Amino acid sequence: MSGSMGKVAMGAGGAVVVTVAVFGLLVVSASGGGAAPTPGGSATTGNLDASKVPSEYLAWVQKAGVCDAVPGALSPQVIAAQIEAESNWQPKVVSPAGAEGISQFMPDTWKDWGKDENDDHDGGSPKDPPDAIMAQGRYDCYLAGEVQKYVKGGQATGDITDLMLAAYNAGPDAVRRNHGVPPIVETMDYVQKIRGLISKYTIPPMDGGPFGDQVVTAARGKLNLPYVWGGGNEHGPTGGGYDCSGLVLYAVYQASSGKIDLPHSSETQVTMGTEVDRNSMKPGDVIGFDLHNNGDYDHIGIYIGNHQMIHAPHTGDVVKVATLDWYEQYPWKVRRFG
């Protein structure tokens, strides 16, 4: 957790990481000083990859990852990366030093920042993920404001996000005393780990053009909804979810502002739009697959870049991101609608 006293933190997968203060979350420069002062921060570029966040925590991570007081200092990706490093998404874990819950709060810090967020009448608990995740966001934002004051007052230099997260690990006073990120080996190692985790939870900016990017954005908004045979229409889920062609027709309809209303059939969808070579695909293109090698394109998904697609696979599964590797063995048809 946070503070200026030495603690033992839980690292990714439950490994113990010795730090100056438990509850570290970091994206920092390698040593104090570093980059020139910035008015905000550089939490991330790109959007949260919702497929990487456990569905039961997604809404809370998105809500917590905002700091209006210091724009750009915090993001949902930072929140998610911190949680993985602290507890590996385990809501009941307790560290040897006594840090508790998914966000690994020490009791004294929890008294200042914890409260009941989900109205379950527990009074607020670090072992209740909604309570802990929101407290994590509040404390991050507070620290961003503190280190921003140091930068503006000439007491520290560096990127605000870096300094904010260094303060999580070593305490804000350590940032002030060292005029930037403290040159503590444990802190700097921890920072590099979080830097990598932030990338894991980030979707790079898309390059499918205005239409293709909107197709992807519409589909991403339905991640984790259940597969429902025949589910989905141009306005949203039906029966609580989507099937593969229902997701495609919804996303294309939304991206085209209702001008393109596709049939609810993967076999027909792969005959429409403009044919595209698979080596020239862009985000937002639609890919049909002949999974039985019989000329019947019975599955379809939306390409999102990086050899991945969003699709609704089959009964018992959910709308999700998947690699295209497994589908290489089957015939494809790629179509573009914008």
Rank of each mutant, 00 (worst) to 15 (best):
R278K: 08
A144E: 04
G65K: 02
E267A: 13
P263H: 02
M309L: 07
V276L: 04
N47W: 14
P263Q: 09
A322W: 10
V94M: 06
Y330A: 11
R278Q: 09
S257D: 10
H314K: 09
Q308D: 10
R335M: 14
H235R: 03
C141V: 03
D131G: 01
P283T: 10
R220E: 14
P37N: 06
E186L: 07
L223T: 12
Y330F: 15
D140Y: 14
S42E: 06
G284A: 06
D131C: 00
H235C: 00
S29E: 15
I203A: 07
S125H: 11
F105Y: 03
A167D: 01
P96I: 12
A50E: 01
V216K: 11
S245H: 00
L48K: 15
L262F: 00
N169R: 07
Q254G: 01
V276H: 08
D298E: 07
Q308Y: 10
T44W: 01
Y330K: 07
H307I: 02
I300H: 02
K52H: 09
G240Q: 14
S257I: 03
A73H: 07
Q148S: 14
V17T: 04
G24K: 02
G231Q: 15
R195I: 15
A166K: 08
E56I: 13
E86P: 04
V175G: 01
K152P: 03
V318D: 09
L143I: 09
S75Q: 12
P129N: 05
V215T: 10
G65C: 01
A135P: 03
P237G: 11
Q62D: 02
Y201S: 15
D285L: 01
E84K: 13
P182V: 08
F211S: 02
N118S: 03
A156H: 05
A218Y: 06
S95I: 03
A312D: 05
A312C: 07
A21Y: 00
A144V: 06
K193N: 11
T109C: 02
S31M: 05
G40S: 08
K92Y: 12
D298I: 05
G65F: 01
I203C: 05
A12T: 12
W113L: 06
A218L: 10
S55Y: 11
K259S: 11
L247P: 09
P39C: 08
P237W: 12
A167F: 07
Q254N: 03
G241Y: 14
Y327I: 13
Y168T: 08
H179S: 05
T187K: 09
L262Q: 11
D207M: 05
G316A: 08
I300V: 15
G40Q: 06
A322D: 15
A255R: 05
K115L: 02
S55I: 07
L58G: 00
I160M: 10
V216P: 12
R278E: 09
P283N: 10
Y242K: 05
G231W: 15
V53S: 03
M10G: 14
G65L: 00
G123P: 11
G295R: 02
I310N: 05
V175H: 02
Y142T: 03
G13S: 08
Y190A: 03
A15H: 14
H121W: 08
G13K: 12
I310S: 06
Y330C: 12
A322L: 06
A218E: 01
Q192R: 13
V61F: 02
I102T: 09
M309Q: 15
S51A: 14
A312N: 08
G101N: 10
V215G: 11
M164N: 13
W110Q: 01
